[in-house]
Write a protein that binds this DNA or RNA. Structure first.
Length: 274
DNA sequence: ATCGCAGCCTGTACGC
DNA sequence: TGCGTACAGGCTGCGA
C-alpha cells in the first residue's frame, strides 16, 4: 500500500533510471480498464519531468508537434514500475509497457487493478482538491492545527483524508498516532494545540524515516512494495504499532491492540495513546 | 452537508 | 489435498 514514502521512493528510482529527456516510441496496453488513448497520446513524446504530489506520480511529457500532456499515476495497493529486458514479454499482471527510443522497456504492473492512470492537460486542476504536502516547509504546525480542528471525525480517519494533508495511509497513520501518543478514536476537533503540534511532528518524523528507509514492504496480507530496480524498502523493520497486534508496546510494554476505524485495521497502544 | 460503508480486485492465510 | 471464506488496502460514489 504505497503511501508518501513509498511513492517518493518510486519517483526517485524512476528519476534515477535516466529516463528523463528520452522519447517514448510506443506504448502497449494489456488491460481493458486502462484508457486506450494512452498509446496515441504518449507515443512520440519526450519525458520531461517526474514529480510526486501526495500519493500520485506525475509524468510530464512534451512534443514539438503536440505540446505538453500529463500522465498521473496512482499506485493504489499493488501498482509498481518494473525494468524489463528489451523484448521481454508482459508478465501476468503487467498492464502497460512503455518503450523508449534507446530500447528501455518500463512495465507498469498492478496485480489488483486498483491503480489509476489519468491523462490530463490540466494537472493543477487534477490536484486542486488535495491537501498540503506534509513535508513542505509551508506546512506548519499552526496550519495543521487550523485545518484539523474543523474535522468532526476520528483523528485516524482525518489523517487518511487526503483533503486534510496528503500522503498518509494506514501504516503511517497508525505510526504517527503511536508516536504522538494520541488515541486513534479521539475526535479531531478535540485535539489540543499541544497535541496537534505533537501529531504534526510525529507525521513528519514517520514519513521522513519511511523515505530514509526506502519505504515499507509487507509480504503477508499486504502486497510487496518494490523499487524500480526490484529492491524492497526496509521500513517494515521499524514499525511500532502497525501490524504489531498483541506485541508489547515499545514504550510501556502493554500489548498493542487492533480495532477497526473507518473500515481500516487500526493498531494502537491502549495505555499510552490517550 | 456530512458521514459511513459497499464495491473495486486478487493473492494469501486460514479453517474444515 | 482441496475447497471455501475472510481479509488486506485507497479511494469513489452512493445512500442515510
Amino acid at each position: 500500500m504505497p503511501e508518501l514514502p513509498e511513492v517518493e521512493s518510486v519517483v526517485r528510482a524512476l528519476k534515477g533510471a535516466s529516463l528523463l529527456g528520452k522519447e517514448v516510441v510506443s506504448v502497449e496496453v494489456f488491460c481493458s480498464k486502462i484508457s486506450s488513448e494512452l498509446p496515441r497520446e504518449i507515443s512520440g513524446r519526450r519525458l520531461t519531468e517526474i514529480q510526486r504530489r501526495g500519493k500520485y506520480i506525475h509524468f510530464l511529457w512534451d512534443s514539438d508537434l503536440k505540446g505538453k500532456v500529463s500522465l498521473i499515476v496512482h499506485l493504489r495497493m499493488t501498482g509498481q514500475f518494473l525494468w524489463k529486458r528489451e523484448s521481454e514479454p508482459a508478465g501476468k499482471h503487467e498492464r502497460v509497457h512503455f518503450l523508449f527510443s534507446d530500447g528501455a522497456r518500463i512495465a507498469f504492473q498492478d496485480t489488483r487493478r486498483f491503480a489509476t492512470l489519468d491523462l490530463t492537460t490540466d494537472p493543477d486542476g487534477f490536484f486542486a482538491e488535495l491537501g498540503p504536502e506534509p513535508l513542505d516547509p509551508s506546512f506548519t504546525a499552526e496550519a495543521f492545527f487550523q485545518r484539523i480542528r474543523i474535522y468532526q471525525k476520528a483523528v485516524k480517519a482525518s489523517l487518511l483524508d487526503q483533503h486534510l494533508v496528503v500522503g498518509i495511509g494506514n501504516i503511517y497513520a497508525d505510526e504517527a498516532l503511536w508516536l504522538a501518543q494520541i488515541h486513534p478514536l479521539r475526535a479531531s476537533s478535540s485535539l489540543l494545540k499541544k497535541e496537534c503540534a505533537q501529531l504534526y511532528e510525529a507525521i513528519r518524523t514517520v514519513l521522513k524515516k519511511g523515505i530514509e528507509n526506502g519505504g515499507t514492504s509487507l509480504g503477508d496480507a499486504a502486497p510487496n512494495f518494490h523499487h524500480l530496480n526490484g529492491r524492497s524498502g526496509q521500513n517494515q523493520e521499524e514499525l511500532f504499532a502497525y501490524g504489531q497486534t498483541s506485541k508489547p508496546c515499545v514504550r510501556c510494554k502493554t500489548a498493542i491492540e487492533k480495532i477497526v476505524v473507518n473500515q481500516r485495521g487500526t493498531h494502537f497502544c491502549p495505555r499510552c495513546q490517550v
